[in-house]
Amino acid sequence: MTLAVGPGHYLFLSAILFTIGTVGVLTRRNAIIIFMSIEIMLNAANLAFVTFAAAIGDLAGFVMVLLVIAVAAAEAAVGLAIIVAMFRHRQTVDVGAFNVMRG
């Protein structure tokens, strides 16, 4: 193992972060923590996009990251609104308690 860093190292870091996010989604029951794990996964994807864009010389990756960040902002706003609405119904953010679709 060498300490010199190439694009592969960034991709590996991105994979590690994505895995951490996935494990977070699978192991937590607090809706807000699950949401934060999703944000980690989105950021890992962003890191991979930037790495590829810088490595092969393509602007599409940078533009994609910008769009992903905008989508993440929209997703956070709507998702947190949903959590607030569900909390109002059940007085909890335990995802195990949200087992009916009926309002």
């Binding site: 190439g6 694009p7 592969g8 190292h9 991709l11 590996f12 994979a15 930037v50 590829f52 864009a53 810088a54 490595a55 092969i56 010389g57 393509d58 602007l59 599409a60 940078f62």
Partner: peptide
Amino acid sequence: GGLLEWTPTVTGPAAGVPEDVLG
């Protein structure tokens, strides 16, 4: 699987551009 040794095999449309101009 050797992800650490990944090196680009294709080149994008802006391949010749200096790195700090690209981003």
